[in-house]
């Protein structure tokens, strides 16, 4: 028996909205410690990694490890049927070929339940090495979203250059060039608005804006986003999911041909 109840059900809605355009299907691995998901997009350029700890749920039970293959656009459609303030419970029996979703309104006057078919999926898990990154930037997630959107007007790629002073995003194309520079915040009164750069070594890397714009769909999940970068390794874009865990995106860099 698997059952996970989340009072802040909107987190599920936001999570699905964050990944459904990047991934078509994925396996939700459920165990006694929580729910994890790891999946690459079809072009093998980016990877989504989700971790939700059992402690973060209001009720959590998982008697036997369970791998649920889910067609994400379908789950997203069903999650859209939940109200923003609804409590969401996900349930499955051990050998189930379906998953149940129960949406309860806060006042308990409306209860909806949906059942969705699971799918058989063969996915390969990748081992992601523990890495010390040369630069870790924390910034408002809305600012990151805006920068990716704005620079997409100029080109397909963004060059991210990080030094101890701050971080610079640059794009160029047929119409010209654009640079957006963010300086490290002088004071950190408002933690959510701060730009913080933790740098061991300056880096300058190029990434496809198309994918960063997909990642930025996770903006409603968290006020801050964290970018971890080292020379010639995939970028990590991390959004915290409240008390539950995290949503991380990995993106392979573009290199000089």
């Amino acid at each position: 028996m698997f059952e996970a109840r989340l009072v802040q059900g909107s987190l599920w809605k936001k999570l699905l909205e964050s990944i459904k355009d990047l991934l078509n299907e994925a396996i939700f691995d459920c165990s006694s410690t929580g729910i994890t998901l790891q999946a690459m997009d079809s072009s093998h350029v980016s990877l989504v990694s989700i971790s939700m700890n059992s402690d973060g749920f209001d009720t959590y039970r998982c008697d036997r490890n369970l791998s649920m293959g889910i067609h994400l656009p379908s789950l997203s459609k069903i999650m859209k049927c939940a109200g923003n303030d609804d409590i969401i419970t996900m349930k499955a029996t051990d050998d189930a070929d379906t998953v149940s979703l129960v949406f309860e309104s806060q006042n308990n006057e409306k209860v909806s339940d949906y059942e969705m078919k699971l799918i058989d999926l063969d996915t390969e898990h990748l081992g992601i090495p523990e890495t010390e990154y040369s630069c870790v930037v924390k910034m408002p997630s809305s600012e990151f979203q805006r920068i990716c959107r704005d620079l997409s007007q100029l080109g397909d790629s963004v060059v991210i250059a990080c030094t101890k002073e701050g971080v610079k995003f640059s794009a160029s194309g047929e119409l010209g060039t654009g640079n957006i520079k963010l300086c490290q915040s002088a004071s950190t009164d408002k933690e959510e608005e701060a730009v913080v750069v933790d740098m061991n070594e300056a880096v300058c890397l190029t990434f496809a804006l198309r994918y960063l714009n997909f990642f930025a769909k996770a903006t409603p999940l968290s006020a801050q986003v964290q970018l971890s970068m080292s020379k010639d390794v995939p970028l990590v874009v991390e959004y915290k999911i409240s008390e539950l865990g995290f949503l991380r995106f990995y993106l392979a860099p573009k290199i000089e041909d």
Binding site: L47, L126, A208, K254, E256, D257
Partner: peptide, 14 residues
């Protein structure tokens, strides 16, 4: 001109 790399060249299959 820059070329997109694949994640498979950085991360190994488990």
């Amino acid at each position: 001109k820059s070329k997109q790399t694949s994640l498979m060249s950085f991360f190994k299959k488990k």
